[in-house]
């Protein structure tokens, strides 16, 4: 697998990964602000797949119709839709694309659900690797209390209830997130994650991220055209 830079794309993709409650969205939002204020061509990819894929996925989730295999393939469909329709064209056009989660989320999640790692990776074989991946390494209990306090109810699949780890949604969620964390850490070297301690204050993490982005990516190549 190659990065977008290695494949000769003019654009660059920066991914932020981590379990729920690790502070990914906050960090990526601040990164986006900064890059925009530098006047660069930047795009934050939200997980908005097309209506069709969304409608099938939500039916499957609502009716608990999904098995580990169908869960995996339908999410790969969703990712492919976003990848082909949104990410690829922007990267061809020389954008800095920021992704809140990327293929590693699927690698961790599907393997925890029992799908073989080699098969899941093969499924996403069409996707290039990010040029930079940040992993926010959270302390499990801290992220759990962040999420569990803010939520009235955990969703079935989000809590990993389909894995039958526990009949109590909170306990199931706890065990599920713990296993995800293990999977992420196991991938960390292979995919050259830049691991950040999520326990640090927001600004400290953001400072490290901005420095790495500036070191690794020739930002002056990404200036947005002047408004006409």
């Amino acid at each position: 697998m190659k990065t977008f830079a290695e494949l000769g794309f003019p654009g660059r993709l920066i991914a932020v990964e981590g379990i729920d409650g690790s502070g990914k969205s906050t960090q990526i939002h601040l990164l986006q602000r900064w890059l925009e204020q530098l006047g660069l061509k930047v795009f934050l990819s939200a997980w908005n797949s097309s209506e069709l894929v969304k409608s099938a996925t939500s039916r499957g989730k609502k009716t608990h119709l999904l098995t580990p295999t169908t869960f995996s393939v339908i999410h790969a469909t969703d990712f492919a839709d976003r990848y082909e329709r949104q990410l690829l064209p922007l990267l061809r056009a020389g954008y800095l694309v920021l992704c809140d989660r990327y293929i590693f989320t699927a690698f961790a999640r599907d393997v925890v659900r029992g799908c073989p790692p080699a098969w899941v990776r093969g499924l996403y074989g069409f996707a290039a690797l990010p040029d930079l991946t940040f992993f926010l390494r959270a302390h499990l209990e801290t992220s759990l209390s962040r999420i569990l306090n803010g939520r009235e109810e955990l969703k079935y699949f989000e809590a990993g209830m389909d894995l039958r780890l526990s009949t109590d949604p909170q306990e199931s969620y706890r065990l599920f997130q713990g296993r995800l964390l293990e999977q992420y850490l196991a991938m960390s070297n292979e995919f050259k994650f830049h691991v950040l301690d999520a326990g640090q204050v927001v600004e400290a993490k953001q400072a490290v991220m901005r420095r790495l982005v500036a070191d690794r990516i020739p930002l002056d190549r990404y200036l947005a055209p002047q408004a006409v």
Binding site: V53, T69, T70, V73, T77, A80, Y83, E84, R85, F126
Partner: peptide, 19 residues
């Protein structure tokens, strides 16, 4: 739908009937 997306959509349909 683009090519890979449509292909995976069909694979989902297959996997669902398989299981």
């Amino acid at each position: 739908l683009s090519r890979i997306t449509l292909s995976l959509f069909y694979a989902t349909d297959f996997a669902d009937q398989l299981e």
